[in-house]
Design a protein around this nucleic acid. Structure first.
Lengths: 233, 233
DNA sequence: TAGTGGTCTAGACCACAAA
DNA sequence: TTGTGGTCTAGACCACTAG
């Protein structure tokens, strides 16, 4: 019974990974160079190189010209943290999705917002507040400040019909962003919007995003207690 | 003044990425195939393939045999979430690091722990509790259940001298794990350990890890209010 | 200076999935 | 059936850097 025929480079990667996991190669150890491994596995250098590059990108190996390849000494694993469209995530969880536009107004942005976006204090930004519901339960409170100069066309968008995050994705797919996750006590406004008691612990995700190197949006996503952000290494 | 000489595949990647960011190629659009792109850029198919593969791994493109390459319709960005050694992180933040071993005892594990680890209920695991301090301020409360059968040698380890997480890294580098992040209200024990008031919002990270496909450790990391987990896309 | 990884070529065959 | 991406080879030259 043959196992599933994986590509050679993938087999090699698994083999090398096993050497690390079992402790045959310990953190800091130097491993054979590409030419040696190629002859060991009976393939070309390109093929082992593919495996080694993959392991290096995953953080298992550290590669340097001339000095060779070593097992990472201080391996910091990186778990992929997904950033989905809110509505899609709620639907995927099996709930009926609905959202309410609470506010949509050009206002003077608070200092913490302009600072995060690297914009001058006192500037006017588009303030958008949305409550996202799954099966009538308010799951997320979205509080967003948008730069109308970077998000041209947002003025014409009907944000009561299309969720802001979806609109942004269509308009400005995949820019840069910084993300912060924290726990906070719900204030009165949040408690009101999410139907909680003041002081209840809420999970907050702040995202500052840029489009073509220009400030685009500062977002605070407040999650209902019990919400878990999950991932796997 | 020549710009820094990037590899060809990297230049191509940047070029293609620009097509996406500027909206020349929109989500769902099909882009030219490898052979066309190779002739466009005057290089071999391998080189454009490298660029395309990179963009696909980053989530910008979706590639399928026969049907070709398209701009991702529902692009989910992945932010790298780092999992550092606690002591290193505290030192890197500029604080003096110190930790206290609160408990280290073989006990019957609670159901939620055995369930997460996929172990039979009622089994005995090594329970370890540690308070991590930065500059005398308790920053994290670590509550861990270890499988002594997978972590052979933990019985001999002096966990008052070496932090558990560091010991584990030496012993079982880089296994698999699932991670969950949530907000909770501090219970009495947590409030006591972290010098908080009961009910204060704390950020909790749960990590269930495996070594060579065997259950290794269930960890709850409770962070002091104000702590932020940060990353960038 | 020499050893190592990084890149690139010009091919080839194969696996998959849409028509 | 056939177009597409996925893999692999056997070379080559280059870039970086430790000794």
């Amino acid at each position: 019974m043959p196992t599933a025929a994986l590509p050679v480079w993938s087999e090699i990667r698994g083999d090398l990974l096993r050497m690390i996991h079992t402790g045959a190669w310990k953190p800091g150890d130097q491993i054979p160079n590409e030419v040696e491994l190629a002859s060991t596995y009976g393939c070309t250098r390109s093929t082992v190189s593919r495996a080694l590059r993959d392991l290096a990108e995953a953080g298992f190996l550290v590669r340097r010209r001339k000095s060779g390849t070593r097992v990472a000494a201080n391996p910091t694993r990186r778990a992929p943290l997904e950033v989905p469209i809110i509505g899609d995530a709620i639907k995927a969880a099996g709930h009926a999705y609905r959202f309410e536009l609470v506010e949509r107004k050009l206002k003077t942005a608070p200092v913490n917002v302009t600072q995060a976006l690297g914009m001058p204090a006192g500037i006017d930004l588009l303030h958008v507040q949305v409550v996202h519901r799954g099966g009538n339960l308010p799951l997320q409170f979205e509080d967003r400040w948008l730069n109308p100069l970077a998000a041209t066309g947002i003025s014409q968008a009907d944000l009561a019909t299309i969720a802001v995050d979806r609109w942004l994705l269509q308009f400005a797919p995949l820019g840069n962003a910084t993300i912060a996750i924290m726990a906070e006590a719900a204030g009165e406004d949040i408690a009101d919007a999410l139907d909680l008691r003041t002081g209840d612990p809420v999970l907050v995700v702040e995202r500052t995003s840029f489009r073509l190197s220009k400030p685009l949006s500062f977002l605070r996503l407040v999650h209902r207690p019990g919400h878990r952000i999950t991932t796997a290494i």
